[in-house]
Design a protein around this nucleic acid. Structure first.
Lengths: 338, 338
DNA sequence: TAAAAGTACGAAAACGATTAAGAAATAAAC
DNA sequence: GTTTATTTCTTAATCGTTTTCGTACTTTTA
């Protein structure tokens, strides 16, 4: 292991000098500096993160909380996209990313304890149960935290703009001539659902469209079962909608299958729209009309804000960052005469 | 920051005693041990990973190389599934997972340098360009490395059993009565493709079936474009196949779209099979016949082997671990009379 | 009862870096 | 020519652990 000491001996100076030279402090002469740097290079020196962290209390390490409810968080495109954005940006700024977990040697430890143990300088909560006391402890703690799609008074939040997204979607559908628009929304507990639902109602209202109660239904995100059932019921109504908006692109598949099964054509007989803009949504025929959530950007912004609050804690505000969704005009919402 | 010193003072003993007590060394009396442990608990003590790593040279941290060629590695279900398996198992055994990158302060550093900097005890290469000199440096280095779906003489490899998977798939298709089976395979450079292709030929041979050259084609993994083109050409042959096997579930979608466009029914008019067993594959109608790769298990095994070679370097062999794929009998391969 | 063995703890060095304070040499100021 | 400032480097302490070795005391053994 080549350390400062090795270099110091080779150069006939003290380790202090070597340290300062490599860190470009100005009380070392240019000549010695370059001599030391050359030797360091030649010896293949790299600093020891542990030693440095111990002394400076800076780990350049960010913890990411990524727990999969339902056992598949990492494999869901939305979350993994966000994680990727986070990773890319953090790397760019010289930070590493480590998953936060709860195992330590044999015993359990809380997220917060893990963070202190590893000296994480900040935490990004990408995918977690926000009601979990351990998660709350983390959010209420003193380590800077950024949350995704969840607002907490003590943390900077980066959220997809579900209000604007839903508004854009509804207005586009309206523009295509649709007047009977149904919305199957996801679980009501989440912020995401609340925003989208409120925005749906508001936009419909603005457009002067009535929303029959039976047009509003619930089905789980990321699953097809619920969407299947709800779609069937919607299509069997006396006055069925001409367009159905689904919780997301994945659950939409369930509805889509039912529609095809019933012998209906998309978008001839019935129009459908998703939400997410998954890769798959653009592979299907017809390509889905959906709102693409810019997961890269969401993750990237999260990283930027987090690092900012690490490096400039005084001047960084706790804020709510909103990332616009992008309407993807596929072919699943057809043009009709109203 | 509550440290050993804090506890030592509170208990009126030395830090050495505290350390030994908390680590359950046997030259501390049971009485003092419990007294110390209680105080530690009460003070909310947690060891400092950096200090410990510095002293013991053990970081309990594993590096994961996860570079997205084509800019989407993390969001691909196969890779993210493996990563998740890795994460879960590593956590279970008390290790943390950190992404390996190449940025350090301002300058670049190689993967290997990053690993030494962070004292990673082992490395898992999940998704990377194996021809990259930096990746090769890592594999040839002294840090234990486990690779996924790639074999290198110096590293333990965990691979999906593509030989058996393809064999199972072909035999199942044969069992359904198909005799004219086409195979659109992925990029030839990869081990995965080589294994599958060889196994395809071998199995067909074993079954006494001829493989016309025009039945073997190439299309990229994870993209639909190539599969579209190849499917069209296959279906326009004088003697088209009755079943087409695709590089993977994603590229299959391209072929599927072409088939639907041409007015053919799956599996009535043409049968198709994928490879991967993505979530989506089981949402489509008809559900895909495919080989499900147990990504959880692949990642889990990778973690186990890696940790084993970290903790028992002497007794751990460099080996090639093969994870069986599971035939998923969807409905996309129909029964026909030969 | 003296020697040997065992038990329970402490002192101090070490891991590899950073940094405040000090020292030696040179340059500038009066 | 003495004092002061500047430049350049060193000394030594420190971060929070672990670990080797030593010591004091107690218990066992012959």
């Amino acid at each position: 292991m080549v350390s400062l000491k090795t270099i110091a001996e080779k150069c006939g100076v003290s380790t202090a000098t070597v340290s300062k030279a490599l860190n470009n402090q100005k009380d070392i002469s240019e000549e010695t500096k370059s001599r030391i740097k050359k030797t360091a290079e030649a010896l293949g020196y790299f600093p020891n993160a542990a030693a440095r962290a111990l002394k400076t209390n800076r780990s350049y390490n960010i913890g990411v909380l990524f727990e999969e409810e339902a056992g598949s968080g990492l494999t869901h495109e939305y979350f993994s996209g966000v994680l990727n954005g986070l990773k890319v940006q953090a790397e760019k700024q010289g930070y590493d990313i480590t998953f936060i977990n709860t195992c330590f040697e044999n015993r359990k430890m809380s997220y917060y304890e893990h963070c202190r143990y590893r000296n994480f300088e900040g935490v990004a909560i990408v995918c977690a149960d926000f009601n979990d006391p351990d998660v709350m402890e983390l959010m209420n703690g003193t380590i800077p935290v950024v949350t995704i799609d969840y607002v907490h008074h003590n943390c900077t939040a980066v959220c997809s703009n579900n209000i604007q997204g839903m508004e854009d979607l509804v207005k586009y559908i309206y523009g295509q001539g649709h007047r009977k628009i149904a919305y199957i929304h996801g679980q009501k507990a989440s912020y995401v659902t609340k925003d989208r639902l409120a925005s749906f109602y508001r936009t419909m209202d603005e457009l002067g469209l009535a929303v029959p109660d039976e047009y509003i239904r619930t089905a789980d995100y990321l699953e097809t079962k619920g969407a299947e059932i709800q779609t069937r019921e919607l299509l069997n109504l006396k006055d069925p909608p001409s367009c159905i908006i689904y919780p997301d692109d994945t659950s939409l598949i369930g509805g889509r299958n039912v529609i095809i099964e019933m012998g209906l054509r998309i978008p001839k007989d019935i129009s459908i729209a998703g939400y997410d803009g998954t890769r798959m949504s653009q592979l299907l025929h017809p390509r889905l009309t959906t709102i693409r959530q810019d997961t890269e950007l969401i993750g990237g912004e999260a990283a930027k804000r987090l690092i900012s609050s690490i490096e400039r804690p005084r001047t960084t505000l706790i804020e709510r960052v909103v990332i616009e969704g992008i309407l993807v005009q596929g072919q699943s919402v057809g043009r009709i005469n109203c």
